[in-house]
Measured scan of single mutants.
Amino acid sequence: MEVRTIKVFTTVDNINLHTQVVDMSMTYGQQFGPTYLDGADVTKIKPHNSHEGKTFYVLPNDDTLRVEAFEYYHTTDPSFLGRYMSALNHTKKWKYPQVNGLTSIKWADNNCYLATALLTLQQIELKFNPPALQDAYYRARAGEAANFCALILAYCNKTVGELGDVRETMSYLFQHANLDSCKRVLNVVCKTCGQQQTTLKGVEAVMYMGTLSYEQFKKGVQIPCTCGKQATKYLVQQESPFVMMSAPPAQYELKHGTFTCASEYTGNYQCGHYKHITSKETLYCIDGALLTKSSEYKGPITDVFYKENSYTTTIK
């Protein structure tokens, strides 16, 4: 009895394709271990004539594949690729409408935090270190965002349907971005203890939790000093293409032309909904596939993004 075979390709990165001759009487799992086709788990399936010449994702289970996976995804987590594939199996079914010149995501599976993050990423200057993220990001900007969303979920250790947080998501993504040249110098002034300067680099240099107003941050924000008295913390120097200011959701007025974009969060910790506000020729609110415009805006804002380049204080 002759062994019926077909020729397929296996890959971990969709760049390096490895030619395989597979036995049609055995499952993919018996031949390769966990195997995925377009995100779908085909591990328990036997090869079919229609699979001839198709590319299958496999887990990096030998040295060659491990090197290829690390170079593309910059992670050695053995569960990463499987999590990416199972997320992709959902995100490829989502709709990605162009809204006001940006790629958004039609609401499904509690994905409003991903839509808000995706919209924000198209408006701030950011370059990702893992080629996987950078490639998928370019495709997302062009309207094909399924891979990018699935990668975000995998890097953030999230599953489809789980509630997510924009600030946490951005923080994970910033860790995989090139923020080497970003720098922030802060000064804390206390009447009792004097003053202390701190220099922050990388992710810490672009994120701040405690106030939404970048102007206020430049002037000074009140913080408790270690001595128990009130101290003032203010920005001395900022070198970065953008800054992200966050605070627990509270009524906040966004003035046209003073910011790049913002995240609105309605609801409580267990259950809520994100919308995205962007400042173009007027203010726009993007909620999944829905767009509304207004000249002014007041609502429960939790993150505001500002364009920056270089700032030095005039406070002496």
Rank of each mutant, 00 (worst) to 15 (best):
F56N: 02
A69M: 15
D109V: 05
T282Y: 11
T55M: 08
L102K: 05
D303T: 03
K158Y: 01
D63Y: 07
Q230D: 10
L114V: 10
D62M: 06
N111H: 03
L17W: 07
G161D: 01
S263R: 01
V8F: 06
D109Y: 03
F56R: 04
D109C: 05
F259C: 00
T19H: 13
L151T: 03
E52S: 13
A40R: 13
P131F: 02
S213P: 02
V3N: 14
T75K: 09
Y113H: 07
S213K: 02
T169K: 01
A117E: 02
A132G: 08
E308W: 02
G267W: 10
T19I: 14
C193G: 03
Y36Q: 05
K46E: 12
S86D: 15
F174C: 01
L173M: 15
S263Q: 03
V21H: 11
K158T: 02
K127Y: 08
P60G: 06
G210N: 03
V243C: 05
E215W: 06
S79I: 10
P130H: 03
N268E: 15
A108C: 12
Y284V: 14
S213R: 03
Y274R: 02
L235H: 01
V42S: 08
A205E: 00
M85W: 09
T292V: 09
N178P: 03
Y72W: 08
A132K: 08
D38T: 09
F80T: 04
F9L: 11
T5Y: 11
Q123P: 04
A177E: 01
E215H: 06
T27E: 15
D13E: 07
T43C: 14
L121D: 05
T226S: 15
G82W: 13
H18N: 10
P47Q: 06
T199W: 05
Y113P: 04
D63Q: 10
C182W: 06
L65C: 08
M209R: 15
N147M: 10
V22G: 08
R66I: 11
H90Q: 15
T5K: 11
L254D: 03
K93Y: 11
D38S: 09
Q123W: 03
A150E: 00
K218S: 02
D62I: 06
G101E: 06
Y36F: 11
Y73L: 05
V185A: 02
K127A: 11
Q123V: 07
N268I: 07
Y73I: 03
Y208R: 01
H273K: 02
K54S: 13
D303C: 03
L88K: 05
Q98M: 15
K307L: 12
K316E: 15
I152R: 02
L235R: 01
K255A: 10
V166M: 09
H176K: 08
S213H: 03
E296W: 12
H48M: 12
L290F: 13
D13M: 06
P130W: 02
F305L: 07
P248F: 15
L59V: 14
N157Q: 10
E215C: 04
A40Q: 14
R184C: 03
L59F: 10
T282Q: 12
Q30E: 14
F259G: 00
L114C: 03
N111A: 06
A146P: 05
T35D: 08
P249S: 00
V189L: 09
T266E: 10
T120I: 14
T75Y: 05
A87E: 08
L235C: 09
C112W: 02
P97D: 07
Y138H: 14
A250M: 11
T226L: 10
K280W: 08
Y297D: 01
T91D: 03
A262H: 00
M209L: 12
E125M: 04
L88N: 06
P78R: 14
S294I: 15
L114S: 03
P224G: 08
Y84R: 04
N61R: 13
K191Y: 09
K280T: 09
H276A: 00
C285H: 11
P130A: 10
Y96K: 02
T226A: 14
K191F: 08
S240D: 01
G101F: 03
V58S: 07
G210W: 06
P131T: 03
M85R: 06
T27F: 15
C182S: 03
M85I: 10
K233Y: 06
Q31P: 06
K275I: 08
A136I: 03
L151Q: 02
S240P: 01
Y57G: 06
T64K: 11
K275Q: 08
E2W: 08
M244G: 00
G228N: 03
P78W: 15
M24D: 11
T199D: 05
N14W: 08
P249Q: 00
M24G: 13
G267P: 08
H48V: 13
I6S: 06
Y208T: 12
V12G: 08
Q20K: 14
Y73R: 03
Q251M: 14
T302W: 04
I105M: 03
Q175D: 05
A132H: 04
K54E: 13
A136P: 02
P97N: 07
V188C: 08
R184K: 02
T199Q: 09
D62P: 06
D23T: 10
D287W: 01
D23N: 11
A250T: 14
T75V: 11
D13P: 06
R66Y: 09
E296L: 13
V58L: 09
A87W: 00
E264V: 11
C182K: 04
D77Y: 05
G39R: 05
Q216T: 08
Y155P: 00
L283P: 01
Q122F: 05
F259R: 00
K316F: 15
S50I: 13
Q134Y: 06
A150Q: 04
Q175V: 04
H48G: 14
E168C: 07
I315S: 15
Q195K: 13
E264L: 06
H256A: 13
N157D: 12
D63M: 09
F128N: 00
A132V: 05
K106C: 07
F80M: 03
Q98E: 14
Q270L: 10
V160L: 05
Y208D: 06
S104Y: 00
L121A: 10
S86I: 14
K307A: 14
L235W: 00
R167M: 00
E281W: 01
E253L: 08
L119W: 03
T282W: 07
K229F: 09
Y252V: 13
G143T: 02
A177H: 01
E162F: 01
P131A: 05
Q270K: 14
L153C: 07
G33T: 04
G164C: 04
V67F: 15
Q30P: 06
E215S: 09
F56A: 06
T266I: 10
A154T: 12
Y214S: 02
T75F: 01
H273V: 02
F242K: 01
H18Q: 07
Q20N: 09
K307D: 09
Y172E: 07
Q123G: 04
T314V: 12
R4K: 13
L151R: 03
R167A: 04
T266Y: 07
K298E: 12
K275F: 00
D303H: 02
H273D: 00
F259D: 00
N61D: 10
P60C: 07
L186R: 04
E68Y: 05
A250W: 05
C271M: 15
Y138S: 14
K298L: 13
